[in-house]
Nucleic acid binder design. Sequence first.
DNA 1: CCTTCCGTTAGGCTC
DNA 2: GAGCCTAGCGGAAGG
Lengths: 246, 246
Amino acid sequence: MDLEYVAEKIREGIRSGSLIVLTGLMEVYYEGRAASSLGPGERLLIIKQDGSLLVHRPTGYEPVNWQPPGSKIEVFLEDGVLVIEARRMNPEELLKVKIKSVYSVEVRKLRDLAEFAMYATEEEMKKAILLDPSLIEEGFKPMEDERRAGRAGFIDILGVDSSGNLTVIEIKRRNATAEDIRQLIGYVNEIEKEFGRKPRMIIAAPGIQKSAIRELTRYGVEFKCVTPKKCHEVLQRRRGLDRFLA
Amino acid sequence: MDLEYVAEKIREGIRSGSLIVLTGLMEVYYEGRAASSLGPGERLLIIKQDGSLLVHRPTGYEPVNWQPPGSKIEVFLEDGVLVIEARRMNPEELLKVKIKSVYSVEVRKLRDLAEFAMYATEEEMKKAILLDPSLIEEGFKPMEDERRAGRAGFIDILGVDSSGNLTVIEIKRRNATAEDIRQLIGYVNEIEKEFGRKPRMIIAAPGIQKSAIRELTRYGVEFKCVTPKKCHEVLQRRRGLDRFLA
DNA sequence: CCTTCCGTTAGGCTC
DNA sequence: GAGCCTAGCGGAAGG
């Protein structure tokens, strides 16, 4: 494919805010926070309407090189090779793609206004527990969420159990790690300073890593199995109920 | 574009181990570790030779939905709509793309055998310090790298300073966090158990997060500014010298 | 197989 | 703008 023709097609695509998809033989050089080089090979190059640029090899989930949205893209010929440079500052980074041969290039303006909805996140787990605190245990009463614990950070849920004990809940959507336990301890130290007594500590997660069980028993942290899926179902059920009542 | 034709083209592409790039109007549903839904919109869909699948919206660095390498892909028509399902187990996850209209589809076998080289990584920082220990301070002598520190993990570099003090170096390619300091303390506790005395602790990083400065002074950890770029240059210089001497 | 840790992490949120 | 944390994190290395 004629490289000057392709260059103009890409420039026109960028001007018109289109998506550009190109396959061809290329080399890639990156320098910024880190640096990388990748010799000649057949790859897929994508330039998006917002100035993001991705270079994908024929295998693997991740792009081998990229530039995030907002980078400034220049297209020109140099020594008979099509060069695409994507530059951004803060941090200052440069991605340079040298394309020796273009197999295909497609320029197309895509419209996509749909809203992306994600479920079974940590945020949903928290909402479900606030809505149905028996997910933790019978009689648990949440008092605050996202409460600041001094310098240590934010507590997911602060509440009291059926015996009136102050209780700190830390939620994880994945198996809890030793580091998660230490983080919880950090929060609790701050709460103890503030309230003058040590609260119950519960980690709510689908499971625990083996290495974290030591810390668990050592610090007297309790574990309650709560899965993202279960919490999502609780919310779904509740929403269905609300709709029925409305 | 005729959907049955496209379906067969995609199936043939998968059979032959080709890269498939498609633009069209589609909905996307995901359920697995989490769940998501995305209504109709114009997007880019990529199926790679290794069974990875990516759905990209017209903007943004990240795919909105995906399936990693090794997922099993099925293509069929359902209610007059082209459906692509990518399934994987462990964890069990299903990605379903419903394509109402195909604007373009490209099937192409790409060859890419080049080696990807990455520079200015944490690994390079370590190599540079081992090669030129004055990056830490004059008179510092590395003894071991990647030394096991009991259960706490691995120490980046263990050495002695000009006064003969045992010294533990923790390297970060980004600004050090409070968590990094705690990690270093964990290593040092193990080293103290083993050697019977507390070593000097140095964190080598391009900077320190503000919230980490408290931990730094509190635990007596020292900070030495070392950047990935500087280390990379040290290695480059050294390699150039080696080549000159050879 | 599980765990740990790095990443040009990206992206979102708060201060 | 800088700091802080989550993620369907992915990926690699080590046990």
